[in-house]
Design a protein around this nucleic acid. Sequence first.
DNA 1: ATGAAAGCGCTAACAT
DNA 2: ATGTTAGCGCTTTCAT
Lengths: 332, 332
Amino acid sequence: MTTQREIARRAKTSLKTVSRVINRDPLVNAETRARIEAIAAEIGYAPSQAARMMRSQKSNVIGFVADRVATSASSIDLIRGAQDAAWERGKQMMLFNIEGGTPSQQLADAQLAAFRAEAVIYAAVYHQPVELPPSSIPRVLLNCFDPRGGEHAIVPDDYQLAATLMEAVLDRGYRRPVFLNLNRAIVAAGLRARGIADVAGRRGLDMTGRIYEAVVGQERYGVPQFIADKLVPELMSAVPDDRPDVLICGQDILAMDVYFVLSELRFRVGKHVAVASFDNREPIASLLKPGLSTMELPYYEMGRAAMLAAIDPPARPKTSRLPGKFIERSSL
Amino acid sequence: MTTQREIARRAKTSLKTVSRVINRDPLVNAETRARIEAIAAEIGYAPSQAARMMRSQKSNVIGFVADRVATSASSIDLIRGAQDAAWERGKQMMLFNIEGGTPSQQLADAQLAAFRAEAVIYAAVYHQPVELPPSSIPRVLLNCFDPRGGEHAIVPDDYQLAATLMEAVLDRGYRRPVFLNLNRAIVAAGLRARGIADVAGRRGLDMTGRIYEAVVGQERYGVPQFIADKLVPELMSAVPDDRPDVLICGQDILAMDVYFVLSELRFRVGKHVAVASFDNREPIASLLKPGLSTMELPYYEMGRAAMLAAIDPPARPKTSRLPGKFIERSSL
DNA sequence: ATGAAAGCGCTAACAT
DNA sequence: ATGTTAGCGCTTTCAT
């Protein structure tokens, strides 16, 4: 590999002048600059990040520790958002996939320390509280938060997502919505139930007894245990005037399950009963027939926000809640 | 950050001895070692990767350039496989997501050069030929290959995948299979057609006129254009004795589409007609009712193989074809 | 506008 | 078994 010293030798100038040119310092004679740039290009000079890190004591590295995230499809967008933001700000993101346990956690920490990472983003698979051991470098929690509120966190605004979706549902004239919610243990479930109930209440609709826990566990590949095959037939067996006119599902893959159960029962989605959901998990959402109307979770934007917060840490820890977007297809 | 010098000062020993302890060089007195290790732990010493890189002229960094891969769900497994293998071998993988074009490609190259990456893995979204500009560092192509054969490549063995699937189909007694293949422009399509036709021929079945191109384009989120809604009704309108008894789909999301079309036509999958496919794309494959029998693409193993090849480059470029695994569910 | 010198933290090479 | 010296490639500091 060629060095600045080599360029200086060829350009018959000093090391420092070469350094200035490489670092775009304007205080260099235009002609000298041109000559140096030509030589650098010719010999294929590439600055050594290691030497820079060492001398400047700045690594420009931000760690991204993904707790099982890299296994989960939706969270690629978290990674992409963070990567893109890092790139724009001239930072190098370093990705670590850990499996919950402390052993891999510690290995990741050691690597991050060795690279003198300036900050770490810790991302979880689903919106949840986490209690992490204290960290010596700035940390941003992504899709999770410190229940004691001591850390900067970026999470989806599940209350807003549910409220927005409920408004869309009611705007379209549905009056007998049922919400097939996530597992109660999941933070999002509580926030969404409130968002839905609040909007309903404001519109003179009582959701009491219309919110069910339909997603029981969380499994590999994000395929949890659903109870749609028991619950949906029950709900749909009511007389037409009591029967739900729309099934709001806590996640797209539950909606997919619901589609199958409904089809089994000879109900046609979008005709006999509407379906709406949360995630906009592609390709499922657009491949279902009819296409699934669903709230898109702001994962890409969350990834970006986390990276920006990691690069310029806010003065005091705060939690940012990012809104989701309603994606309209024909199931609603 | 503390340094080895600081440890040496406290331990009243030399820098080099500390270096030996940190690097697990056995030629150190056990007592000295213990003392140094205690001090290191106490002051929270972490070696500087930058200094190591610089002095040893070894970066231990392997680049992973993902051409739109990080957008695509299935290819997370490529990344996980590579990451895990890198980890085991003490290497740090550096992930770059590029968008096909040369501008981001060049930025990634510059970063990799700056970090003095020892090798690069170049991964494509689907099995395809690629012609890349020559690279100064060892390169491994993942899920793609150099048509001139000049580069090391890791690809799925699409011929084997199709042959294995076809054997499973015929073993189960199906005699009127139809193959809804991928777009002809896709390398996998040709290999699979041959695999299926060869196995059929060996079993006295002629696939002529039974292989269709049912996946037309390749789009965002891996949702291409399907022609199942035209083709399947046509195929299924034949008299029962001429009608396909199994539809083999080129990918799981096409299979999902086929499920919907069949349901529309009042055919029940697994009862009136079987379905099989390629990908094992979760959660779709296990969420479909009945569950989809499908050939799992060996992405995780491919990622691993690519990383191992990147770390220990083979003497001469070769193409490794990795076999897939039949995942049995009840659609077949 | 340019340059000289020092040194970031570590390990290779060579003593002792 | 331990220590000394030098230097990796760069940027900081301080001259000129």
